[in-house]
Design a protein around this nucleic acid. Structure first.
Lengths: 251, 251
DNA sequence: ACCAATTAGCGTAGGCCATAAACAGTTGGG
DNA sequence: CCCAACTGTTTATGGCCTACGCTAATTGGT
């Protein structure tokens, strides 16, 4: 059996319990839960091995009996997060589009509830944890009653995964900017007015003049965020629809 | 005049030169160039203030006369990168789609040439540097000869920015995985076969059986990468086309 | 001509961080 | 009972960013 990348054995419960030695006073679940709690409350920045251990009343080094490295902990955290927030089961009576739309908006909700997931650095391999693979599977499952070829299914689901990740992250960025505005920086629209030149950036200048960048700084409501996502997703789904039109319902 | 966020004054050349004191033996351009060189060659990980200073034959602390913080350096680096690789000028005789497609593929090329840009942490505000704003402007400019409303223009260009960022980053991830495969991990398809259960992840299992995850591990060629991007972009552009169809060429 | 103000570059040091290595205490198998 | 395995801790190393203070260079004002 070849060696698996870090964290995979943990996630799939393939780590054999120790036979000899003192009984563990800690568990991976506790560690991961504590880490998730910190990250959810304060972000990835303040998440250090020391903080996690402190929260558990243990020493920092004790964690390394359960986790090979901090990066492994991060990878496991993200997958556990996906396990605890499972994707919706596709409804075989509905069409692929409503199913996939529900899947997409659930994913948006997950990223919005756990923003730090978007900042976890990429692991040494593509995702192989049960959580992320389940999300992938349920996305693919939306095409179960169609004849869409496999490559297209994978392409479409990947496209959605990528876009949703990016979109929610961008929304975070804007919100973060609004927070910085409270710290003394001028609002985004204000700053653009200071630097955007009508001759050098004419098309952008027009939008700035129309005040298109003025409102979002006030801290977008969830509704507005939803709107942004909805816009992009609608466009993508329209594209998908044209692409898979020929294969639909040809059981 | 309100205080601008870090780096903006530098990028727009609004920092007044010192009147008194010894002449600077260094310049922001040199520092940024050196940093970009390091990041391009080895990535963001080995990029430390010490490395940059070392490359310039100076001490680490001397850099702080030109840059307020390391994060400011990173923000400036990304924008300078965008300045030196300017977007294409839209051709007023062509339609919006070919123009926007050229713009999109140029952006793909930029991210592929400077992968570290995708890993620069987000700044305290949305981008306000001349480089990034120029890219935004040229994207918007593709709709110059249409009547597409401003909100839609912005939405479309944002959608493309987000998707391209995510897609290229994902491609990097896969390539990185292939590199890790050389380090002893089994190939991605191999790993999936180890963990994917036919009962729990049926739709994914089918793709795994078909060998859909087997080839990309060999280190995708540029051609293949282009294919992946092209697939997603085609889908998006089809969606955009439907969305803006009503406004086209109604001068 | 000269002093005071300003600035460039550097050395030191402090406070974080991840983690390698050695050690003390606990447990089950032979 | 004793050894081997295992847990949790202590200690130590090396890296990082950067606050602070110093020296030396340069210039404006008088």
């Amino acid at each position: 059996m070849p060696e698996l990348p870090p964290g995979v054995d943990v996630l799939w419960g393939r780590r054999e319990p120790a036979k000899r030695g003192p009984r563990p006073n800690l568990s991976i679940e506790q560690i991961v839960d504590a880490a998730i709690e910190i990250a959810s409350a304060e972000g990835l920045g303040p998440l250090s091995m020391n903080r996690v251990a402190e929260k558990l009343g243990k020493s920092a080094m004790s964690l390394y009996r359960y986790v090979r490295t901090k990066d492994e902990l991060l990878q496991v955290m993200t997958d556990v997060c996906a396990v605890k927030n499972a994707p919706p089961e596709p409804d075989d009576d509905a069409g692929w589009r409503p199913n996939l739309e529900r899947w997409a908006y659930e994913l948006v909700g997950l990223y919005r509830r756990f923003p730090w997931v978007l900042h976890v650095p990429l692991g040494p391999t593509p995702p192989v944890g049960p959580g992320q693979l389940t999300w992938l599977d349920r996305g693919l499952g939306c095409f179960r009653r169609t004849n869409v070829p496999s490559e297209l299914r994978l392409g479409v689901v990947m496209l959605l995964l990528i876009f949703i990740r990016g979109q929610v992250r961008m929304a975070q960025e804007v919100n973060q900017g609004a927070a910085g505005a409270a710290l003394g920086y001028p609002a985004y629209g204000e700053m653009l007015r200071l630097v955007v030149d009508k001759d050098q950036l004419p098309d952008l200048a027009r939008l700035v003049d129309e005040g298109m960048f003025d409102d979002p700084e006030e801290g977008m409501s969830e509704q507005e965020l939803d709107m942004e996502v909805r816009f992009g997703l609608t466009m993508i789904f329209d594209g998908i629809e044209r692409l898979v039109a020929g294969y639909e319902e040809e059981q």
